[in-house]
Amino acid sequence: MTTSEPKRRVKVKDASDVIAGVVLFGFSVVLIFYLVPNYINEPPILQSPMMSPQWLPRIVGWLILVFSILLILQGLLVEGSNEEDERTIEKGSPRRFGLMVVALAIYVTLFEVMGAVFCGILATLILFVAHPVRTWWVYSLAFVFPIVVTFLFVEVMNVPLPMMPFWF
């Protein structure tokens, strides 16, 4: 009934640590061998290698590489603590999450085009619908808050925010 196969297989104690370690290992390799040489310009003459703009990023890259290996080993050999078990969550509906992504996308893409007030109203309404909020008067807050907060920023605190295109 029992076979010797399970004994030979390395049992992963914490899969997320191994995944995180592998991702960071890959990132550190890309950083050390591609990003630092290609995206950090080094002046032609240097009195000390420690003065180079590449020096600290390279050191950090090597340290990330070393610690990512340690993280992989930790994931393979050390049991995850109870604290880390709290990471598991019960996922909600994809529609709810999708609507949140839409609201975030509205802020990023339309904020300057349509203005702070319009974006604030639209994104807040979408997020209220996403949950959904069942008290009808709460939806009025989606109109009141963006107007009041924009006024507070622009008029009281002199922090410029983009206005609606048809506002002068």
Binding site: L104, A116, G120, L127, L141, F153
Partner: peptide
């Protein structure tokens, strides 16, 4: 949270 998000963006 929708209101917090608005403050965050602003």
């Amino acid at each position: 949270f929708p209101i917090v998000l608005m403050f965050c963006v602003y």
